[in-house]
């Protein structure tokens, strides 16, 4: 392809580049190119490992560690107290994994029609159909041997005293979530950032459109009190607000500007 571009240089030159993809190729692409990585490495320890890995890759590409931000996706549940939040989190998980959804998750692993099973009953005794991996299409799949996953789920159900299908799915598919009072959640988010498990988060609320309201009203002031979050926007572009270096302006363009 070749030709002239029809839009003048925009305020940022090019958009802030975020990358989501976890293979070695994906990490390397991000390390060489991106301004931020969106990752699912959520726990504190896994986060620290991932952080060290990709920042190291960035340095090997001749960049500074701070040129690449690590932003894990994270969910959260708030309450007036930590106990209140924990109760709510249980309700949220049950809403996220209804009986039909539990069976659908199971079918994804087992590769079979399990619609005859009761979500409140035990896991199926039959083994996964390993040849039927395309039962779900159009979503990102993380390829693991279904038999391994099925065994893990059975072990999990047994270890917790005989979980039902739905309870097992709730346990097995839960991701890192920050659960607690606003103060607890703020402290925990900040611990991750200050401890180099990440540079921040892409927060995933569970309600449209009000899922962020309580966070903005209660957690944000706590983070501001800790000195970890701005109290006003200081940059004029996203790139500036993220503390990233400006994009290079080509030499030819600079000449033009000075002569203009």
């Amino acid at each position: 392809m070749h030709g002239r571009f029809s839009v003048p240089r925009s305020p940022q030159g090019h958009p802030v580049l975020i990358q989501a993809g976890d293979s070695a190729e994906g990490r390397d692409f991000a390390a060489a190119t991106a301004d931020a990585i969106f990752t699912l490495h959520g726990s504190y320890d896994a986060g620290r490992d991932f952080y060290a890995d990709v920042k190291g890759r960035a340095v090997r590409h001749g960049r500074r560690p701070e040129d690449l931000l690590v932003l894990p996706g994270a969910t959260f549940v708030l309450g007036d107290t930590d106990a209140d939040a924990a109760d709510r989190a249980v309700e949220v998980r049950r809403a996220q994994v209804g009986p039909q959804t539990a069976i659908a998750f199971l079918e994804q692993i087992w590769g079979r029609d399990l619609s005859g099973y009761d979500a409140d009953g035990p896991l199926p005794a039959i083994d996964p159909d390993v040849d039927n991996v395309s039962i779900t299409r159009g979503r990102v799949r993380h390829a693991r041997d279904p038999r391994t996953v099925a065994q893990e789920w059975r072990d999990l159900a047994a270890a917790k005293g005989g979980l039902s299908i739905r309870e097992t799915v709730i346990e097995a598919t839960s991701r890192t979530s920050f659960i607690g009072s606003a103060r607890t959640v703020a402290a925990e988010l900040d611990r991750y950032v200050q401890g180099d498990a990440c540079d921040g988060f892409i927060l995933i609320p569970h309600l449209t459109p009000g899922g962020l309201d309580a966070f903005a009203d209660t957690v944000v002031p706590e983070l501001q009190d800790r000195g970890s979050l701005r109290t006003e926007y200081t940059g004029t572009t996203l790139r500036e607000n993220l503390g990233l270096r400006p994009t290079a302006r080509p030499a030819t363009d600079t000449t033009r500007r000075t002569s203009a």
């Binding site: 900040d190 921040g200 927060l203 609320p205 449209t208 000195g227 970890s228």
Partner: peptide, 13 residues
């Protein structure tokens, strides 16, 4: 300066 937390808001998907 204290490390600043970066926040993205993921529209529920």
């Amino acid at each position: 300066a204290r490390k600043q937390i970066r926040l993205g808001a993921h529209f529920p998907g």
